[in-house]
């Protein structure tokens, strides 16, 4: 039995009880304002808030280890690239130049460091929020919330079904892979990469054929129970807006308000300590 790598984890925290639509809106709202703003104090405050929420969601490190590592690697790569392409961009932005060391093209200034620190914070802020959303939101409820945000319910349901079938397909892939190995395909780490790649293709054919047969059956089963008949459908996992949802959205609105007010105070998106 392969452990599911990443996905909804049913727990009993207030974050799990919030509506999917609320969480989606809160995630989008906070991420957008944190992306737009370059006010370090403001972003740092949201980072603290998102780390606090992450703790509240009872997410275990092993659940997110892989994803976090991948994201950290790419963020670092990105920061380095930003520096390589424009080592003096910070100077341009903040209109002053405090040289730390270096000369010629590759110089390091306080302004550049400060700018890149802002970027790093922006990367950090969205990760816990996105993970909270994905791990605390039931896929069916997620579909319900997408539908609530006026996405067609057919598309919303397709998303939920896809999420629901990922483990099934993993199991089938595993089974077929073993059956192929038993016939002589070496697919373990021992084989060459090209051989493993060819072997994987060999698994895909039966996987696709058996999946197509399943899709046929399931679409018949859905039609027999009137899916797609009405322009509208309701959701068993529907979550009527409760006080907690309004409070959360209110809180998010206040934070966004502060962010916008800071634009005004700073005379633009950038906070300039220099």
């Amino acid at each position: 039995m392969t452990e599911q790598l990443f996905g909804y984890d049913d727990q009993d925290t207030w974050l799990h009880h919030l509506g999917g639509a609320t969480k989606l809106l809160a995630f989008l709202g906070l991420s957008l304002i944190a992306m737009a703003s370059y006010d370090t104090r403001f972003i740092a405050a949201i980072v603290v808030l998102s780390l606090f929420l992450f703790k509240q969601a009872h997410i275990a490190w092993r659940q997110v280890r892989l994803v976090v590592k991948v994201i950290v690697t790419f963020s670092l790569l990105n920061l380095v690239t930003v520096y390589l392409f424009a080592p003096e961009y910070g100077v341009q932005l903040y209109g002053s130049r405090h040289l730390l060391f270096g000369q010629g093209y590759f110089t390091l200034t306080q302004e550049q460091l400060f700018y890149e620190a802002n970027l790093a914070l922006k990367y950090i802020v969205t990760v816990p929020l996105a993970l909270i959303f994905l791990i605390t939101t039931n896929p069916s409820e997620f579909a319900a919330s997408l539908n609530k945000l006026h996405l067609s319910y057919r598309v919303s349901y397709a998303v939920a079904l896809a999420l629901r079938y990922i483990p099934d397909i993993q199991t089938a892939y595993h089974q077929i892979s073993l059956a192929q190995q038993a016939r002589g395909w070496e697919l373990s780490a021992k084989a060459k990469l090209s051989a493993r790649f060819k072997g994987a293709l060999q698994i895909l054919l039966p996987l696709i054929f058996s999946s197509l047969a399943r899709i046929d059956t399931i679409s018949q089963a859905m039609e027999l129970r009137r899916f797609g008949r009405n322009p509208r459908r309701s959701w068993y996992r529907d979550h009527p807006f409760a006080k907690a949802d309004w409070l959360t959205l209110g809180g998010v609105a206040v934070i966004i308000g502060i962010g916008l007010w800071l634009f005004h105070q700073n005379g633009g998106r950038f906070y300039n300590p220099f």
Binding site: N138, P139, S140, A160, L161, R164, I218, A221, M222, R225, R226, F227, G228, R229, N230, R232, R233, S234, W235, Y236, R237
Partner: peptide, 18 residues
Amino acid sequence: VGLTTAEDIAFALENDAI
């Protein structure tokens, strides 16, 4: 089709927008 047994039982009613 449902993620849980309850949702699967409810599927037809969902489609009727109950």
